[in-house]
């Protein structure tokens, strides 16, 4: 079941003295329930515009959007109580403490004070909750933003670049937090990020967009497989003999520093069979898995 659905969304920004800038160009997006869904795209590809449109901050020119089964923005007020969001930088009063900032937001929806403490605990800010927001480090600010997004115990959590400005330890903490939230079986997370490793590490599904259009979508593993190269890294006790056997069998090989790279292998067992038939045995056989970065760059480059 999809908790976020975008179909054919178009959005252009009018610019004085310049042609209109297309931010969304018929974008489609579907986020399944109780999944952590990565939302990837180069800068300016329309990720934040999509999120802002879903949250009612930006009006799309055409297309339809649904959140938790309700058309938005028309029925957004009816579902906003189940949606937590952190869009780009956290927006708080700098002179107020973290706790007071959360209290002010919680008051709007009647969230209990105990939930504020729970959320501060979740993001590890309980002991610093009474400090002024302006005194927080970037990581603490970001974590407070996540705490605010969690206040409503959301069914859908929208996180736009949550690792922005964080140090490596902070990034790890946030990723761990997202993983935990995603694993609770109650929360759907839409994670917009330019950090491909982040999406690869924490997301179940991914949607890749470029120039406001959908480029690829599906399970992370499937998207990675679609970009697989079919290359195999191979090491043998007798490299030259292995090379001779494989070239004779029709494989194409490239030399690496201490191994061979066999190209265009659809089934790795064909290599072991060919070598074994000639009395050659392997010391290593590693399919070269595509990482999301290469898939992403390949897909978005095609669309540019």
């Amino acid at each position: 079941m999809a908790v976020v659905e975008v179909e054919g969304a178009h959005k252009s920004y009018q610019r004085r003295g310049k042609p209109a800038q297309k931010a969304l160009d018929g974008l489609d997006l579907s986020v399944a329930e109780h999944r952590v869904h990565g939302f990837l795209g180069p800068n300016g590809s329309g990720k934040t515009t999509t999120i802002r449109a879903l949250l009612g901050l930006v009006r799309v020119d055409s297309g339809s959007m649904r959140l938790l089964g309700r058309p938005v923005p028309d029925q957004l007020p009816e579902v906003i109580g189940s949606i937590g969001a952190l869009v780009e930088a956290p927006l708080f009063f700098p002179n107020f403490s973290g706790r007071r900032n959360l209290r002010l937001l919680a008051g709007v929806a009647g969230v209990s004070p105990s939930r504020i403490e729970e959320c501060l605990e979740i993001v590890g800010l309980r002991d610093r909750g009474d400090d002024a927001f302006k005194g927080y480090s970037l990581g603490m600010k970001q974590r407070l933003g996540i705490a605010a997004a969690l206040l409503k115990s959301p069914a859908l959590l929208v996180l736009d670049e949550p690792s922005n400005g964080l140090d490596p330890a902070g990034i790890r903490e946030v990723r761990e937090l997202i993983r935990q939230l995603g694993a609770d079986g109650q929360t759907t997370i839409l994670l917009s990020s330019h950090l491909l490793s982040e999406v690869q590490q924490v997301c179940d599904d991914v949607t890749i967009i470029a120039r406001g259009r959908l480029v690829a979508t599906g399970h992370v593993a499937d998207v990675l497989a679609s970009g697989a190269t079919g290359d195999i890294r191979l090491r043998a006790p007798d490299p030259q003999a292995a090379y001779a056997v494989l070239t004779a069998a029709g494989f194409t090989l490239t030399a690496l520093a201490d191994a061979w790279l066999v190209h265009g292998v659809s089934e790795p067992s064909t290599i072991t069979r060919a070598l074994a038939a000639e009395g050659q045995y392997l010391s290593e056989l590693s399919p070269m898995a595509a990482d999301l970065e290469s898939v992403f760059l390949g897909l978005t480059a095609e669309d540019q």
Binding site: A2, E5, E33, G69, S82, F93, V108, A109, A155
Partner: peptide, 29 residues
């Protein structure tokens, strides 16, 4: 496939009252 519409969030009347109180608190703070 869409998720079935969910009845979520506090009632609008509650929200209105809470928003007013929250705004007064914001101003005073």
């Amino acid at each position: 496939m869409s998720a079935p519409p969910r009845e979520t969030g506090p009632e609008p009347a509650t929200l209105r009252g809470s928003l007013l109180r929250t705004e007064l608190a914001r101003l005073a703070a």
